[in-house]
């Protein structure tokens, strides 16, 4: 279990549309890499190419020492030692829980005398003991999702692929599922490739996150780096948690914006006088009566973690933390807790 996955320069085209353009990344043994992006950006296509459900036009996929796919080499999906959790679960409606797991074990060539032990072990791990003879239609949403992960892991694959597994789950089920996945990962140390469009989900589970933007890997980094140092405005937008505020680079590197003058970035992205975009994270903006910046309050609400105020700065709407609600139309002062990433507009 847990092999290194190397994906090199993947290209894929569907008709006239180029879905992937030179995607490369690695997943270290035991690591969870999340592929994050908006719909149609190429993340599920990448997962399908890794799984062997589709062929790339160019590029290479290797798992450990084995080349799964390269010019002149192709290992079909059923011979790649992978497990996969599908969006919408995709359980076989005509098979019981036990039959699902037996099917995988048989297909993977696990000796018959090991089946009972493996199945019991797996059902216990996902809390499905006693449900072995149930059909998918007889399972609740959470049980069905746990069966899908049991199916993916029962043969102890080299790597686990997850294709938006939480997309159809409500909030409590999603929390349960992510907790179960984290526990199983801690116990079994498998590597995983996790496709999602939800940054919070990616940050909760992944060691590193690869952000896709229109078929290109825009940035691969830890959640912390992605939040504080996004490589481009597109990455900042996908990662979320803030807004892009236009401004102009002033003498000395400071940025003139509708909020006021922002501190100089560590590295100037453009020449003095040029237009730039500053990524202002919600968590870095705080209402402070003595703050150097100014904006117009539009609304305030409590979001469970504290008060959140929506501010208007020029044509941009920003969010900032505050200790108390603010009246609509009030001009407020605020401070920036750290210099924001600045991009050339």
């Amino acid at each position: 279990m847990a092999e290194r996955l190397a994906v090199t320069d993947l290209h894929k085209r569907y008709g006239a549309r180029e879905v992937l353009r030179g995607v490369s990344f690695e997943v270290a043994p035991g690591e969870v890499l999340a592929l994050l992006g908006t719909s149609g950006c190429g993340k599920t296509t990448t997962l399908n190419l890794v799984a062997g459900l589709d062929r790339p036009d160019a590029g290479m996929v290797a798992l450990g020492d084995a080349t799964l796919c390269a010019p002149g080499a192709w290992v079909p999906a059923h011979r790649r030692d992978l497990g996969m959790v599908f969006q919408g679960q995709m359980l076989w409606p005509h098979m019981t829980v036990r039959e699902h797991l037996t099917f995988v074990l048989k297909a993977r060539g696990v000796p018959g005398n090991e089946h009972d032990v493996r199945i019991s072990e797996q059902l216990e791990a996902v809390r499905l003991t006693g449900r072995d003879e149930s059909y998918p239609a007889q399972l609740s949403g959470g049980e069905a999702q746990r069966l899908s992960i049991a199916r993916a892991l029962v043969a102890r694959p080299d790597m686990l692929l997850l294709d938006e597994p939480c997309a159809n789950l409500d909030a409590p089920l999603r929390t349960d599922f992510l907790a179960l996945l984290a526990r199983l990962r801690a116990e079994r140390k498998f590597s995983a490739l996790y496709v999602t469009h939800d940054a919070a989900e990616a940050f909760e589970l992944a060691t590193r996150v690869a952000v896709f933007d229109e078929g290109v890997l825009a940035q691969t980094a830890t959640p912390e780096v992605l939040c504080t140092e996004p490589a481009s405005p597109a990455v900042a937008r996908i990662v979320g948690g803030g807004a892009l505020l236009p401004g102009t680079l002033a003498e000395g590197g400071a940025v003139e914006t509708a909020l006021g003058t922002l501190p100089a970035p560590a590295r100037a992205p453009a020449a003095t006088g040029e237009k730039v975009l500053c990524f202002l994270r919600t968590e870095d903006l705080r209402l402070n009566a003595n703050g150097p910046l100014q904006a117009l309050a539009r609304a305030s609400h409590y979001d469970g973690r504290g008060w959140l105020t929506i501010l208007e700065a020029g044509e941009t709407l920003l969010r900032a933390r505050s200790d108390a609600p603010v009246a609509e139309g009030e001009r407020v002062k605020l401070e920036l807790l750290r210099p924001p990433p600045v991009f050339k507009a």
Binding site: A51, P76, H78, M90, W92, F103, V104, R151
Partner: peptide
């Protein structure tokens, strides 16, 4: 649904299976 067959493929089942 095509994904039902994909799930079997990923599980390691050859075409006949």
């Amino acid at each position: 649904h095509p994904r039902l067959l994909d799930a079997a493929k990923i599980a390691g089942a050859p075409p006949a299976m």
